[in-house]
Structure formats: structure tokens, C-alpha cells
Design a protein around this nucleic acid. Structure first.
Lengths: 98, 98
DNA sequence: TCTATATATCGGCAAAATCCGATATCTGGA
DNA sequence: TCCAGATATCGGATTTTGCCGATATATAGA
């Protein structure tokens, strides 16, 4: 849990938005073909943020490398879900250190 | 209280360090000529982080523009103190939205 | 008024971040 | 085996950030 890396990952509003969307999957990703329990399919984010596929992939990768997202690869898809443990640990750490 | 601007301000480890140092002034700035109750004098940060005067000034300015620091100008000095209201509001907001 | 000190701002350079389109990789199905 | 779809990675252009030294500004004191 690298606090600095996480803070850098959160320094872009699109990435913060991704995390917030994923907090309420049924609200923001109800049109997903796969069950939401599998996680959120990468292509779902493209439609919503208007950025290109490669840019979205990079944002997701940044969040994943920082430990904020977990990824499950199933077939040709990549399903992302929040890493609640890391997020909670980060918030605790930030609240006590800052 | 602009969450995005605050997160960008926190995306540099030196700035986070400044805020953390200021949480315990007597511990980190005990050598300050002026009473710590006035705030922390800008030049105190230079000695501790090894960066140039202009760079430190820019970091402090970033924190102040984000609302995380308040500044009191007294004579030729600039005294900085944490803006606890904004910091607490930001942490609350982040904890509930993230 | 002259000088010393503290801080802010400017100009320029280097590094990092952001974005895109193109391409590579991987999977599943025909 | 070939093709289509999903995602990752590459290459390059642009913007932002970070850093410094030099300079400007402002204050205090001689």
C-alpha cells in the first residue's frame, strides 16, 4: 500500500470518477451484458467517459498498479472491481497521517 | 473545497510531507525563531527538504491555493498553518465518496 | 535613504503525464 | 486455421509539473 502512488493515481478526476462509478455498479453499469458480480468490463468505461480505448486502458492500469482495483481476466474480457481492502486502508492511513 | 484540486496538491510527496510536519510543529520546527503559535515560517521548510527557495515557495503556494494551508504575512515573513477545516472536510468527503 | 533579509515571480529547461491512432496480443468461435 | 472482438502496448504530439537561478517586491532596521 504505497500512499504516494495512490495519491498520484487519484490526482486525475477521470480515475476518481471510475472508482466512484464502481461503488454503485447497478446504477452506472446496468447495461452491461455480463453479470455485475463478475466486475465491470473495461469497455464499459469508454462509453461513459468519452475517452479512447487506449486512454481508458491506461487509466485502469494506473488504478490497478496503485492497488485500488483488482482485475479478473475471463476470456477476452477484463473485469475490474474495487479493491476495498486497499481503499479502506488508504483512507485510514490518510485520515490519521494527514 | 475543490476535491480535484486538493487531490492534485497531494499528488507530490514533498507537499504531503509539509502537511504532516505541520501537524507536529514542536517536533519538526522547534528551532524556529518565532513562536510556533504564529505558524510556520516559510524558510523552515527549505532547510528540511533540501529544495531551493523558489521551489519551496511554489509548493507552499500550491497547498495554499488548494485551501489546505492558510497564510499570515507578518513583516517580511510568511507564516503558514494548516487549514484544519478544509483538511477535515476533504477527508470526510473523500471517505464518503471514494 | 540605503541595506539586508524574506518571499514571490519569471524564464527556461527537463521530466512526467495525458491523449490519440496504430498495432500487437490474446481469446473464442466459425 | 482463420477471423472478429477485447484489451494492452507502442510511438509520438501536446500539456503539465517540477526544478533551478535570477530577479522583483516588500519589509525592517541602521
Amino acid at each position: 500500500m504505497d500512499k504516494t502512488e495512490i495519491l498520484k493515481a487519484l490526482a486525475h478526476p477521470v480515475r476518481v470518477e471510475f472508482l466512484e462509478w464502481m461503488k454503485e455498479p447497478e446504477r452506472h453499469f446496468s447495461n452491461q451484458a455480463h453479470p455485475l458480480e463478475m466486475g465491470i468490463c473495461a469497455n464499459q468505461f469508454e462509453k461513459r467517459c468519452g475517452l479512447s480505448q487506449s486512454t481508458v486502458s491506461a487509466h485502469l492500469s494506473t488504478l490497478e498498479k496503485a492497488g485500488l482495483l483488482k482485475i479478473d481476466r475471463v476470456g477476452q474480457w477484463a473485469f475490474y472491481r474495487r479493491n476495498e481492502e486497499t481503499i479502506a486502508a488508504f483512507l485510514d492511513e490518510l485520515s490519521s497521517s494527514l
